[in-house]
Amino acid sequence: MRVAFVGKGGVGKSSLAGTFARVLARTGERVLALDSDPMPGLAFSLGVERVDHGLPDEAIQEYEEEGRRRYRLRDGLTGTGAVEQYAVRGPDGVHFLQLGKARGPRWNNTRQHFGFQRVLDDLPGAGWSIVGDLPGGTRQPFMTWGRYAETFLVVIEPTSASVLTGRRLAGLAATDEAPRVAAVANKVRAPDDVEQIARRTGLQVVGAVPFDPHLATADRLGVALLDHDPEGSTAVAVASMVDTLRSGLEPS
């Protein structure tokens, strides 16, 4: 399974992606969680202790091409090798790799940016499931940062702004890789929220996660939801979503 979580900022992508990755790993799958947001996020939701886990400079090699400076993984290092060497092992055995994190006014992630892209070009295949967490908005998703995904999960909360972003992200289905695109309704409060999201975005809704105060508490404490409230409504909803996707989601 290869999925990427996208959506408007603040809708809960990282919380759901981290929980999804761990629940999936508990089914016995080998899971790589990819975080391409230059702001820390997925690490908290997975329960990984250190929040910055970018590729180190030594993994990336500078070279010149037609007079321009370029970057690639160092000689002999494949994308799969980079995952094995540099991804950290999180709870439930999830492997975790992220883009270098932004810090300081002169922060420059050019090396990590291109290094991470090369990893995306050569991700481990058979025997691995990949769960990606992309930054909020439409920029990265439409600029191929989720090109590994067979399925984009658009996380949508029942607000007008989030639904509008979701509707735009539905256009990912028309990109070159022609991925499946489905919605996950998050922070559901009213009986017709899910139906409204489906109707207003045109997307199939494959998961409905109720508004959950325990998630807010976990976020405040900086602990993963699965560690704070393992049997709660969010965990149950995500487990159901994992089952749906494992059993083979029909295209919308």
């Binding site: 702001m39 820390p40 939701s45």
Partner: peptide
Amino acid sequence: TAKSLEVGRR
């Protein structure tokens, strides 16, 4: 939240 405070501090 821990995540937001970390981003805000940066």
